[in-house]
Design a protein around this nucleic acid. Structure first.
Lengths: 182, 182
DNA sequence: ACCTGAACACCGTTCAAGT
DNA sequence: ACCTGAACACCGTTCAAGT
């Protein structure tokens, strides 16, 4: 990639991260291009679809997911406590900007999505937590990891769109944790 | 209301119901106005916000909700079966058009929403089912009816946006049913 | 009192011209 | 090879003129 192209790419992603956080995932691409100091055509060259831009914005976020799940795996308490704590972290991780939970969760399990690799990171994180559950509180066998992502992501989506805070979300996640363990 | 105004109102609602079902809740209002044979200003006079139009479209749907819950209350089986069957009906009821589950569920519990009365119909239907649960399988006391609507609505939202079918939804609703009963 | 439709603003998207 | 920005299409929303 030519030096000026690389510079423009980086500036667009940097600005997009800021604007998505300020205005949500439905922010104007024109606005992002303007604030990055490029023409709209340049943005479209690098990111043909809005989701490609989201994918680039989420690149630096992968490390944070892995750090968070590492910490969650060492959490003190019962299996249920560990799972519930992780679900709260999961909701926070996918709720970086308004509209994010819906976009991420609906892409979960779709191999053609531009953000597929990011969904896999989340699915893998979830699997690590579930695999650590003791035999007596293991995951029921009629749901898989993707379903768990969808269930927790569904709660995150509703919370995001209705503007709910963590205190309103916790009991809903508790229902999921209790319902998931056989 | 003047006769021609009433006629236009009815035609807009009728067309909107059709178009929402065909194209989803984000369909073009301009298109709806054109197909109803009125100017865009007329649509805006009757329905200042998109949600006001949704509310009018959902008017005839209230009866169906009440009929459905009546039937669900006589469903054979354990409390868990009754609850799970009702949840499936609930998802179907709020999934009449794409984007509907998200809109309805995020309005749940918001007294300022234009579709508030419709949310109350759903909440009341849910309460009736829950109140019928036997004492030993009663609803846990850290969640209320609105939370139940949000949980089931969250699953419906994800299913709607990811294009999941009933077979993929059922196990997720089963998790909720199991997690909700103490 | 109600309706029409032109007009404006905004946004996504494309592409010919330029470097 | 990459960028610019004018141009087009589409949509929501308003409002002056009309009945």
């Amino acid at each position: 990639m030519r030096a000026d192209a690389q510079r423009n790419y980086d500036r667009i992603v940097e600005v997009a991260r800021l604007v998505f956080r300020e205005q949500g995932y439905d922010a104007s691409l024109d606005d992002i291009a303007k604030r990055a100091g490029v023409g709209p055509g340049t943005l479209y060259r690098h990111f043909p679809k809005r989701e490609n831009l989201l994918d680039a914005v989420m690149q630096s976020w992968v490390d944070r997911v892995n750090e968070t799940v590492d910490k969650a795996l060492t959490h003190e308490g019962t299996d249920r406590d560990v799972l519930l704590n992780w679900f709260e972290q999961y909701v926070a991780l996918i709720s970086q900007h308004k509209g994010g939970p819906a976009k991420i969760t609906s892409a979960m399990g779709n191999p053609d999505s531009p953000i597929m690799t990011k969904c896999q990171v989340l699915a893998t994180a979830n699997r690590r937590v579930i695999d650590q559950l003791g035999e007596h509180s293991a995951l029921r066998d009629d749901v898989d990891v993707i379903q768990v992502c969808r269930l927790v992501g569904g709660v995150a989506t509703v919370a995001d769109q209705a503007g709910l805070d963590a205190d309103a979300v916790r009991p809903m996640l508790a229902v999921l944790a209790d319902g998931l363990m056989r």
